[in-house]
Amino acid sequence: MEQTATRSWHDPGLLVKALPSVLLQTTCFIAPLLMTFILTFQRTRDFQLRWTWDLATWTDVFSKPHYWTILGHTLVMAAACVAICMVLAFPIAYGLATRFKRFENEIKILITFAFITDATLKTFGWVLFLDKKGAANFLLSGLGLPPESVAFLFTDWATLLGMVYNLLPFAIFTLYLSIDTIDRSLILAAYDAGASKWRAHWEVTLPLCKPGIWAGSVLIFLLGVGVFLEPKVLGGGVSPMSAELIRQTFETRVNWPLGAALTLVLMVVSVFVVLLFSRILNMKRAGFGT
């Protein structure tokens, strides 16, 4: 594409196009975030917000290990979800980008449709499938297996299954995009140099889609720490995750400052984990050299 000249913000054409997004995201994203931060310094009494400007909420957050146990559990679940999604998504994304030419469009439509269908419905579908008297047990007992052999609904495993199910398409899309942009001649060059298929895959393809793996992992991790539907519907609410705790703080306890503080803690800790990991990965690369 031809390079266009640098324009300043005074260019009316640019202003008209960029301003709506800027206004939308500052008034309805940045400003609400600031508001949330301000709210953590207030209190609620008799279900009413009081503008007190003190640190009571924050001392509460930092003195109760309960909140932090739930947060730890949430981070572990999100990390497990990232690992499973990446392992499952890679062969699919790879196949879509390089080998499924004949059915490529059909497969893409099927995945997109499954992805875009409302998560509440699909999660509900899983409950019906996994239930004691659900479809899975019905089909399996038809095959002669003992009754109720599928019995992990309302456990963490069911929650994890739901999370992987709902977030897997994000992994497939990001990996697909990064594999699709790899220059095919690099792999052919590896073959010419005598590399086997496996070796070319390991030393050329995989390193080249590192950015995609990283972007997908970050996206899934950040979305995974915020899930609420899966632990509630599939996990039966037995081991709540942070989002569920936050929801309860707002709805049942009507404690807005505490809910706001827990929201911010969840966000800050997740971003911190992501930064920590990117730091470790960078250090590794610097240490061993490639």
Binding site: Q3, T4, A5, T6, R7, S8, W9, D11, G13, L14, K17, A18, S21, V22, Q25, T26, F29, I30, P32, L33, M35, T36, V218, L219, L222, L223, V225, G226, V227, F228, A243, I246, R247, F250, G259, T263, L266, M267
Partner: peptide
């Protein structure tokens, strides 16, 4: 367009993509 603060604009306009929906809703 190429303009000053383009990457900031991109980050701002795309930010909600990587923000958990439930938290966006609550905020």
């Amino acid at each position: 367009y190429r303009f000053r603060g383009k990457s900031a604009f991109q980050a701002l306009a795309g930010a909600p993509l990587a923000f958990p929906q439930l938290l966006l809703g609550i905020v």
